[in-house]
Structure formats: C-alpha cells, structure tokens
C-alpha cells in the first residue's frame, strides 16, 4: 500500500516536472519584435522618425524568422513593407515585396495582384 502511494507521488511529480519546469520555452509562431509598439508610436507621435522606426521593426520581423515555430514571416509584413516602398515611390521594390507576400500567403494573392496591377497601370500612364 505504502509503496503504491510513493509510486503515485513520484509519477505525479514527474508529470508536473515535464509540464512546467525543464522543457524549453515553446517558440512563437512568428517574430514581431517591436512592431506593435512602433506601430502604436507612429500613431501617437506622427513624424518621419516614428515612421522610420516602424519600417525598421518591419524589416527586423522579416529578417528574423529562425526562432519561430513556423519559419515564416508573419502575415502582412511583406505587404506592409511593400506599401511603405510604394508611398516612397520605389515601385519596383514595392512590387517585389507584394510578390513575396503572395508567395508565402496565397490568401493574399487576390489583394496583392490588385496592388501590382495598380502599379503597372500607373506606370503605363507615366510612360505614355
């Protein structure tokens, strides 16, 4: 009887240990870095500096995917970056980013194609 109780305690202890203590921290699905904070700050203090900080955190999120469980860039990050390029007149880089978003997330294809088409139409008008 006593032996059984001891075994019981040991098992419970072992389970508790596996569940809490020793295991490595699970990796997050995506890397966001300071994206959320900098996005908020870009709204709170609208300035070229805060916009640049936001762009930097987007670039950081894109470049640091190795410590994630998905190994992918978070949804919308390439689109965000592409949109910043587009606003800055860098249409080639914008199209490149929109294409990347689409290739990682097929759910975005319809929207990204629409953006790419918009750029092409605008470029056509300039060329004419």
């Amino acid at each position: 009887m006593r032996k059984n109780i001891i075994i019981g305690f040991c098992t419970a202890g072992a389970i508790a240990l596996t569940m809490s203590g020793c295991g490595a921290q699970p990796k997050p699905l995506y890397t966001y870095g300071n994206y959320s904070e900098n996005y908020y700050n870009s709204k709170k203090n609208i300035s070229p500096e805060s916009a640049l900080e936001l762009q930097k955190s987007i670039e950081f999120a894109i470049e640091n995917t190795e410590n994630t469980s998905s190994g992918r860039v978070a949804p919308g990050m390439y689109a965000n970056l592409g949109y910043i390029y587009l606003k800055g007149g860098k249409t080639d880089k914008a199209m490149e980013s929109f294409t990347k978003e689409k290739s990682i997330y097929p759910e975005s294809a319809h929207f990204m194609d629409r953006m790419i088409k918009k750029i092409e139409v605008a470029q056509g008008e300039i060329d004419d």
Binding site: P28, L29, G76, Y83, E107, F111
Partner: peptide, 15 residues
C-alpha cells in the same frame, strides 16, 4: 498581431 498568432492570415491593417 493577436489574430495572426491565432493562425489566420491577417491583412495588413494600416494598408
């Protein structure tokens, strides 16, 4: 961020 981390494709809000 939270909706993306729940496993959905989230369209970029600001854009």
């Amino acid at each position: 961020m939270p909706f993306a981390l729940m496993g959905y494709y989230t369209f970029p809000t600001e854009m």
